[in-house]
Amino acid sequence: MLSTFTIDDDLSSQDSGGIEVILELENGTRRWCYFMTPKALAACGDWIDGTQIKIHYASPYMIVVADQLTEEVIENALKHIDRAGEIEKCSLAID
């Protein structure tokens, strides 16, 4: 179960890249994930050769939230994922 979280990036950069978040679970383990908005997805990624299309793949710890990221939105998203029993699946163990 999620105990606390820390946002490691300035939320003002949410339209150009990922926002990294460190989670601490009730058992003391620490985990990492990052949040993206659709606008940030459009601003980064790899170009598919010969196209004007960007691709994102192999990103198992990315959580996409529509519109905008605030501390409250991140908290609500993490609580939603935690209630669904998916917090470990959606984050990477660190330390």
Rank of each mutant, 00 (worst) to 15 (best):
I74E: 12
C44M: 05
D10M: 03
G45A: 04
P60Y: 06
G28H: 10
W47C: 01
D67H: 11
A93P: 14
S3T: 00
V73A: 12
R30I: 08
H80Y: 10
D9M: 03
E75T: 06
R31D: 08
S16C: 05
I94Q: 12
V73N: 08
N76Y: 07
I63N: 11
I55H: 01
H56Q: 08
I63M: 12
E88C: 08
E86G: 03
P38A: 05
N27M: 04
K54M: 09
T4I: 03
L92G: 01
A58I: 05
L23W: 06
R83M: 09
P38K: 04
R30T: 14
K39T: 09
E86V: 00
D46M: 02
E20T: 02
K39E: 11
G85T: 04
T51G: 02
G18M: 02
E24A: 04
D49C: 03
Q52G: 14
W32F: 15
A58E: 12
L41Y: 01
S16Y: 11
I7E: 15
F35D: 05
S3M: 06
L23E: 06
G17R: 11
V64F: 10
S12K: 12
A40V: 00
G85F: 07
A84P: 03
A77W: 04
V73I: 15
A40Q: 01
H80V: 01
A40W: 00
E20D: 12
C33F: 04
Y61W: 14
R83Y: 10
Q52V: 06
K89E: 13
D82Q: 04
E88L: 11
E71M: 07
G45I: 02
D8S: 07
V21Q: 07
H80P: 00
K79C: 07
L25E: 10
E86Q: 15
V64C: 14
Y61P: 01
E86S: 11
G17E: 06
K54F: 05
A40M: 02
W32H: 12
E24Q: 14
S13P: 00
S91F: 14
D8N: 13
D46L: 03
S16R: 13
L78F: 11
V65K: 10
A77R: 15
R83P: 00
A43R: 02
I22Q: 12
L2Q: 05
